[in-house]
């Protein structure tokens, strides 16, 4: 499927056969290391410049390590920088993002698990069409729903609020979580489910006792995916939030784009790292499980 990122050391790769000489191995390693530097460069720029006074950056020292190490840009970005109209720093917006992400991820994952279970173990006429419709919903350009969604949130009384954002992310997250669980449960032996049915186990008993205990790997994949997508979203945040309900990405953009006063690059970089930290941490801590879970779910490339 579209979301394949699966790689393993499972062995039977093409290069079991390819032999490379010492000279070409030298070239290969050099190239690989150069590309490591390329991918790390922006991260390096963000980190070192968030730790130096503004004057060092303005003097053309962006690539240099800080002369006078300072944490003031971090403190400013967190609690006192001008974001939009108020000088609150990014802290309240970081909290908004947390409040938005946690319920949206939890609910969409649970719904995805139930949907995947129905679509694979309780199949009915037209289930492929239902799945296809859910799936296509993941890929539409969201510009197509912005106008009616703005109205609908108003009608529901949750326009410009964090619950409104939770609702939007939930609705457009269902497709992906269903996709993950469906592909995973498809591999799960249906005979086990049949046997439990004959023994008189009901719909939810089977789900709780048989499906859920083996759903760990795909739940991890789904949670990481949804967390990253929802935390990183900008379009919905910019469209459907008010000043006091903006998520982190929108606040960071306001901080960086604000045209008043001196451009505090060091504060911008510190803010950017703050916005990046949650997803980076998830990736570094749980990235391995993500790849492993994708393999287990046979989400093919």
């Amino acid at each position: 499927m579209a979301t394949a990122a699966a790689t393993t050391n499972a062995g039977a790769g093409a290069t079991q056969v390819i032999r490379t000489g010492a000279g070409s191995r030298y070239v290969i390693y050099t190239l690989l290391i150069l590309f490591c530097l390329y991918y790390l460069l922006p991260l390096y720029v963000m980190v070192v410049n968030s730790l130096k006074p503004l004057s060092e950056i303005q003097a053309g020292g962006m690539m240099a390590l800080p002369d006078a190490l300072t944490f003031a840009p971090w403190a400013s970005a967190w609690s006192s920088a001008q974001v939009g109209v108020e000088a609150t720093g990014l802290r309240p917006y970081f909290l908004n993002s947390i409040l938005m992400v946690v319920p949206a991820v939890a609910i969409s994952t649970v719904l995805g698990a139930l949907n995947g279970y129905v679509l694979t173990k309780w199949r009915f006429r037209g289930d492929t069409i239902v799945f296809g419709l859910l799936l296509f919903g993941c890929f539409i350009p969201f510009q197509m729903v912005l106008i009616p969604m703005a109205r609908m949130l108003g009608l529901m009384g949750i326009a410009g609020t964090v619950p409104g954002l939770i609702f939007v992310h939930l609705v457009y997250g269902i497709g992906f979580s269903t996709l993950y669980f469906r592909n995973y449960y498809q591999q799960f032996p249906t005979e086990l489910v049949r046997a439990a049915m004959i023994d008189g186990a009901g719909f939810f008993t089977i789900f709780r006792r048989i499906m859920l205990p083996s759903s760990g790997p795909i739940a991890v994949v789904c949670v990481i995916w949804q967390f990253t997508n929802i935390w990183n979203d900008f379009l919905f945040g910019a469209s459907f939030s008010d000043f006091d309900s903006q998520p982190m990405t929108v606040a960071l953009n306001n901080l960086v784009q604000s045209s008043t006063g001196v451009k505090e690059y060091n504060v911008h970089f510190a803010g950017a790292i703050m916005a990046a930290l949650p997803t980076l941490l998830v990736y570094i801590v749980a990235g391995r499980f993500f790849v492993r879970g994708l393999m287990a779910g046979s989400v093919k490339g």
Binding site: L41, N232, L252, A275, T279, L280, G287
Partner: peptide, 24 residues
């Protein structure tokens, strides 16, 4: 390890990526 380095940008928000490259 190398794979992790090549892949980590995918975890970032485009707003973060945009900010970093904008000033770089």
């Amino acid at each position: 390890f190398i794979r992790t380095i090549y892949l980590y940008p995918m975890a970032l928000s485009f707003i973060v990526t945009g900010t970093a490259w904008k000033w770089f």
